[in-house]
Protein backbone atom coordinates (compact mmCIF):
# COMPACT_ATOMS: atom_id res chain seq x y z
CA UNK A 1 0.00 0.00 0.00
CA UNK A 2 1.18 3.50 -0.79
CA UNK A 3 -0.19 6.62 0.78
CA UNK A 4 0.52 10.11 -0.45
CA UNK A 5 -0.85 13.61 -0.56
CA UNK A 6 -2.19 14.80 -3.92
CA UNK A 7 -3.55 18.28 -4.66
CA UNK A 8 -6.88 18.13 -2.91
CA UNK A 9 -6.97 14.59 -1.62
CA UNK A 10 -5.07 11.83 0.13
CA UNK A 11 -4.48 8.85 -2.09
CA UNK A 12 -4.17 5.29 -0.87
CA UNK A 13 -2.97 3.22 -3.80
CA UNK A 14 -1.83 -0.38 -4.26
CA UNK A 15 -4.42 -1.44 -1.69
CA UNK A 16 -4.54 -5.19 -1.59
CA UNK A 17 -7.97 -6.84 -1.10
CA UNK A 18 -7.27 -7.52 2.60
CA UNK A 19 -6.52 -3.89 3.45
CA UNK A 20 -9.35 -2.73 1.21
CA UNK A 21 -11.69 -4.97 3.21
CA UNK A 22 -10.39 -3.54 6.50
CA UNK A 23 -11.10 -0.05 5.21
CA UNK A 24 -14.59 -1.08 4.13
CA UNK A 25 -15.22 -2.20 7.70
CA UNK A 26 -14.59 1.24 9.24
CA UNK A 27 -18.27 2.31 9.43
CA UNK A 28 -19.39 -1.04 10.85
CA UNK A 29 -16.49 -1.16 13.30
CA UNK A 30 -17.31 2.34 14.55
CA UNK A 31 -20.76 1.22 15.64
CA UNK A 32 -20.89 0.26 19.35
CA UNK A 33 -23.74 -2.06 18.41
CA UNK A 34 -25.31 -1.99 21.84
CA UNK A 35 -22.24 -3.49 23.51
CA UNK A 36 -22.21 -1.79 26.93
CA UNK A 37 -18.40 -1.39 27.16
CA UNK A 38 -18.28 0.24 23.73
CA UNK A 39 -21.33 2.45 24.40
CA UNK A 40 -19.79 3.59 27.69
CA UNK A 41 -16.53 4.47 26.01
CA UNK A 42 -18.09 6.39 23.12
CA UNK A 43 -20.58 8.17 25.37
CA UNK A 44 -18.48 8.59 28.49
CA UNK A 45 -19.62 10.34 31.64
CA UNK A 46 -19.07 14.12 31.76
CA UNK A 47 -18.46 14.03 35.52
CA UNK A 48 -16.62 11.91 38.03
CA UNK A 49 -19.92 10.36 39.10
CA UNK A 50 -20.85 12.82 41.83
CA UNK A 51 -23.01 15.04 39.63
CA UNK A 52 -25.93 12.73 38.90
CA UNK A 53 -28.17 15.57 37.77
CA UNK A 54 -25.61 16.74 35.23
CA UNK A 55 -25.25 13.18 33.93
CA UNK A 56 -28.99 12.87 33.44
CA UNK A 57 -29.19 16.18 31.58
CA UNK A 58 -26.18 15.17 29.50
CA UNK A 59 -27.89 11.94 28.42
CA UNK A 60 -31.00 13.84 27.42
CA UNK A 61 -29.54 16.84 25.63
CA UNK A 62 -25.90 16.23 24.71
CA UNK A 63 -25.70 12.55 23.83
CA UNK A 64 -28.15 12.81 20.92
CA UNK A 65 -26.03 15.65 19.50
CA UNK A 66 -22.87 13.58 19.85
CA UNK A 67 -24.60 10.59 18.28
CA UNK A 68 -25.53 12.73 15.25
CA UNK A 69 -21.98 14.11 15.03
CA UNK A 70 -20.44 10.62 15.02
CA UNK A 71 -23.02 9.33 12.56
CA UNK A 72 -22.34 12.18 10.11
CA UNK A 73 -18.61 11.36 10.16
CA UNK A 74 -19.15 7.64 9.51
CA UNK A 75 -21.63 8.41 6.73
CA UNK A 76 -19.06 10.65 5.01
CA UNK A 77 -16.46 7.91 5.28
CA UNK A 78 -18.92 5.28 4.03
CA UNK A 79 -19.56 7.50 0.99
CA UNK A 80 -15.83 7.73 0.21
CA UNK A 81 -15.46 3.97 0.66
CA UNK A 82 -17.94 3.33 -2.13
CA UNK A 83 -14.95 3.74 -4.45
CA UNK A 84 -13.84 0.31 -3.27
CA UNK A 85 -17.13 -1.40 -4.10
CA UNK A 86 -17.90 -3.38 -7.20
CA UNK A 87 -15.19 -5.94 -7.59
CA UNK A 88 -14.91 -7.44 -4.13
CA UNK A 89 -13.93 -10.85 -5.50
CA UNK A 90 -11.16 -9.50 -7.67
CA UNK A 91 -7.65 -9.82 -6.31
CA UNK A 92 -6.57 -6.65 -8.09
CA UNK A 93 -5.18 -3.82 -6.00
CA UNK A 94 -7.35 -0.75 -5.51
CA UNK A 95 -6.97 2.98 -5.06
CA UNK A 96 -8.91 5.12 -2.61
CA UNK A 97 -8.99 8.90 -2.76
CA UNK A 98 -9.98 10.77 0.39
CA UNK A 99 -10.93 14.41 -0.32
CA UNK A 100 -8.98 16.76 1.97
CA UNK A 101 -12.23 18.34 3.13
CA UNK A 102 -13.24 14.92 4.52
CA UNK A 103 -10.10 14.60 6.64
CA UNK A 104 -11.88 15.49 9.90
CA UNK A 105 -14.64 12.98 9.21
CA UNK A 106 -12.02 10.31 8.61
CA UNK A 107 -10.15 11.18 11.81
CA UNK A 108 -13.38 10.90 13.75
CA UNK A 109 -14.57 7.65 12.16
CA UNK A 110 -11.16 6.01 12.52
CA UNK A 111 -11.02 7.07 16.15
CA UNK A 112 -14.52 5.78 16.83
CA UNK A 113 -13.68 2.48 15.18
CA UNK A 114 -10.44 2.08 17.17
CA UNK A 115 -12.15 2.88 20.48
CA UNK A 116 -15.09 0.56 19.81
CA UNK A 117 -12.88 -2.35 18.72
CA UNK A 118 -10.60 -1.86 21.74
CA UNK A 119 -13.56 -1.71 24.12
CA UNK A 120 -15.26 -4.76 22.63
CA UNK A 121 -12.04 -6.78 22.88
CA UNK A 122 -11.00 -5.30 26.21
CA UNK A 123 -7.45 -4.79 24.95
CA UNK A 124 -4.82 -4.06 27.57
CA UNK A 125 -2.40 -1.15 27.29
CA UNK A 126 0.43 -3.63 26.68
CA UNK A 127 -1.42 -5.21 23.78
CA UNK A 128 -2.18 -1.81 22.28
CA UNK A 129 1.46 -0.79 22.51
CA UNK A 130 2.71 -4.00 20.92
CA UNK A 131 2.80 -2.72 17.34
CA UNK A 132 4.89 -5.57 16.02
CA UNK A 133 2.71 -8.45 17.13
CA UNK A 134 2.44 -11.08 14.40
CA UNK A 135 1.29 -13.24 12.81
CA UNK A 136 -2.48 -12.86 12.89
CA UNK A 137 -3.66 -16.11 14.41
CA UNK A 138 -7.03 -15.27 15.87
CA UNK A 139 -9.97 -12.92 15.59
CA UNK A 140 -8.50 -10.97 18.51
CA UNK A 141 -5.15 -10.57 16.71
CA UNK A 142 -7.01 -9.37 13.63
CA UNK A 143 -8.89 -6.80 15.70
CA UNK A 144 -5.62 -5.55 17.16
CA UNK A 145 -4.14 -5.29 13.69
CA UNK A 146 -7.24 -3.33 12.65
CA UNK A 147 -6.74 -0.88 15.55
CA UNK A 148 -3.09 -0.37 14.58
CA UNK A 149 -3.85 -0.02 10.86
CA UNK A 150 -6.51 2.59 11.52
CA UNK A 151 -4.08 4.34 13.89
CA UNK A 152 -1.48 4.46 11.12
CA UNK A 153 -4.00 6.12 8.81
CA UNK A 154 -4.96 8.59 11.54
CA UNK A 155 -1.30 9.53 12.01
CA UNK A 156 -0.89 10.15 8.29
CA UNK A 157 -4.02 12.30 8.08
CA UNK A 158 -2.91 14.27 11.15
CA UNK A 159 0.48 14.94 9.56
CA UNK A 160 -1.23 16.12 6.41
CA UNK A 161 -3.49 18.45 8.37
CA UNK A 162 -0.45 19.98 10.08
CA UNK A 163 1.54 20.49 6.90
Amino acid sequence: MEIRRRNDHIELSELDPFLAELLRQIPTSADPGGVPAAEQRIFSSPTNGKETETCAEWKTYVEPELRRLFQTATQTVAGDLEQLNGNEKSLANRTLRIPSKHADAWLSALNQARLVIAAKNNFTENELNDHFRSPIGSRRDLSLFQVNFYGFLQEFILRELES
Binding site: P46, T47, E65, L115
Partner: peptide, 17 residues
Amino acid sequence: ELYVQQLHGYLLLATLE
Protein backbone atom coordinates in the same frame (compact mmCIF):
# COMPACT_ATOMS: atom_id res chain seq x y z
CA GLU B 1 -19.70 22.32 29.94
CA LEU B 2 -19.27 23.44 26.35
CA TYR B 3 -15.58 22.55 26.42
CA VAL B 4 -16.35 19.09 27.79
CA GLN B 5 -18.97 18.61 25.10
CA GLN B 6 -16.40 19.48 22.43
CA LEU B 7 -13.84 17.13 23.97
CA HIS B 8 -16.40 14.32 23.98
CA GLY B 9 -17.10 15.16 20.34
CA TYR B 10 -13.45 14.28 19.73
CA LEU B 11 -13.92 11.17 21.88
CA LEU B 12 -11.54 12.19 24.64
CA LEU B 13 -12.26 11.10 28.20
CA ALA B 14 -13.02 14.45 29.80
CA THR B 15 -14.85 15.33 32.99
CA LEU B 16 -16.10 18.45 34.66
CA GLU B 17 -15.30 18.76 38.36
